[in-house]
C-alpha cells in the first residue's frame, strides 16, 4: 500500500514535449499499420514494398512507388504525362479539386502510363493512383489507358494494368461511364490481335473500373486483402436488407468465387509476372 503512494507521488507531472522537440521528429518518420496497429519506421516499411512487417498488410502504393517497385530500374518511359482534365459539364469546383490533387500528388491525373521492362521483358504498364481523386475514371484516365493499350498493340508487347479506383468520376457524368466502353473496345481489339492482358487489382477496385478493364485480363490477379466489387457494401446491405459476410468483396472472397486466377503477395509479384511473361514469349526452344 505504502509503495503505491510513494510511486504516485513521484509522478507529479506529465511530460509534454516542447514545440521545438515536436519538430525534431519530422512527420511521417513512423507509420502505424491500420490493420495490426503496430507502429514501425516508414523507411523500413518502404523497403518492404509497403507490406506491414508485422502482419503482412499491403499498404496502398501510389503510382510512382508502383512503377519503381515493379518495373526494372531506369527502364520506364512515361506516356502522355501532361494530359489534363477539362470540365465538360461545367461542374462547379471540379477543376479546383483536380488542381488540389495535382499539387498534393505530383501527378497530373489518376493514372500513370508508361513503357518499361519487367524482368527484362518489354511491357506497357498503366498504374492507377487512389490518392488522386480516389483513382476515379474520367475522360483523361480513359484516354490515357486506351492510348497505353494502343501502344502495347503497336509494339506487340503485353499490357499490364494495376487498378485502384472508386469507380467513375461523378463530375464528368456520362462521359465517365463511356470510358468503360472506350477502354473495353480497345482491349478487345488488342486481344483479338493476340495481345496479352494482365490485370492486377489493388485496394480498392470498384464500380466502373472493376466492371471494365480490371476484369478483362487474360489473367486477373489481386493483392491480398484488397476490396474489389461492383456495388458498395452499404448499398447492397440496404437493398437486400441482409448483413454481408466479413470477407465479402475481398480478394480472397473473389478467388473462392472464381473471379481471380490468383491472389499474389506483393513481394512475389514481380517474380510471378516475369514467369508468366516468359511463358508468353513467342517461339520455344530450337528443339521444337
Amino acid at each position: 500500500m505504502l509503495k503505491i503512494f510513494t510511486k504516485s507521488k513521484k509522478k507529479k507531472y506529465a511530460t509534454i514535449p516542447s514545440e521545438t522537440a515536436k519538430q525534431d521528429v519530422p512527420e511521417g518518420i513512423m507509420t502505424k499499420c491500420p490493420d495490426c496497429k503496430k507502429i514501425m519506421y516508414t523507411k523500413e516499411l518502404m523497403k518492404n514494398t509497403k507490406i506491414c512487417i508485422n502482419c503482412g498488410y499491403h499498404h496502398p502504393m501510389n503510382a510512382k512507388e508502383r512503377f519503381n517497385s515493379f518495373l526494372d530500374q531506369g527502364s520506364v518511359e512515361e506516356l502522355n504525362a501532361d494530359m489534363v482534365s477539362e470540365n465538360p459539364l461545367q461542374f462547379p469546383g471540379y477543376l479546383e479539386k483536380v488542381e488540389k490533387d495535382r499539387k498534393k500528388t505530383n501527378i497530373n491525373e489518376a493514372v500513370v502510363t508508361g513503357v518499361g521492362l519487367v524482368g527484362g521483358f518489354k511491357v506497357v504498364t498503366a498504374v492507377m493512383d487512389s490518392t488522386f481523386r480516389m483513382g476515379s475514371m474520367g475522360s483523361v484516365v480513359g484516354e490515357k489507358i486506351t492510348r497505353a493499350i494502343e501502344m502495347a498493340d503497336e509494339l506487340k508487347v503485353p499490357f499490364i494494368i494495376f487498378t485502384a479506383s472508386g469507380g467513375a468520376r461523378m463530375q464528368e457524368g456520362v462521359l465517365s461511364l463511356m470510358q468503360m466502353a472506350k477502354t473495353s473496345v480497345a482491349l478487345k481489339r488488342f486481344s483479338d490481335h493476340g495481345g496479352l492482358i494482365i490485370s492486377i487489382m489493388t485496394h480498392p477496385t470498384t464500380g466502373g473500373v472493376s466492371a471494365s478493364f480490371a476484369s478483362l485480363g487474360d489473367y486477373n490477379f489481386a493483392e491480398p486483402g484488397a476490396l474489389i466489387g461492383f456495388a458498395g457494401r452499404r448499398i447492397i446491405e440496404q437493398t437486400i436488407r441482409e448483413e454481408l459476410p466479413e470477407d465479402f468483396q475481398t480478394s480472397e472472397f473473389l478467388l473462392k468465387h472464381g473471379q481471380l486466377d490468383a491472389v499474389i503477395n506483393r513481394s512475389d509479384l514481380k517474380e510471378q509476372i516475369t514467369n508468366i511473361l516468359s511463358i508468353h514469349q513467342p517461339g520455344g526452344d530450337l528443339e521444337w
Partner: peptide, 29 residues
C-alpha cells in the same frame, strides 16, 4: 517448368477438383 496455377471459372467458383495453368514443357509454352 515454371507451372503457374490459374484459378476460377470467372463465373461462380474455383473448383479444386480440377487444376490448370501454364508452364513450359522442355522449353515449349
Amino acid at each position: 517448368d515454371g507451372f503457374f496455377e490459374c484459378h476460377g471459372d470467372r463465373t461462380f467458383a474455383d473448383d479444386e477438383a480440377i487444376v490448370g495453368g501454364i508452364a513450359k514443357f522442355k522449353g515449349l509454352p
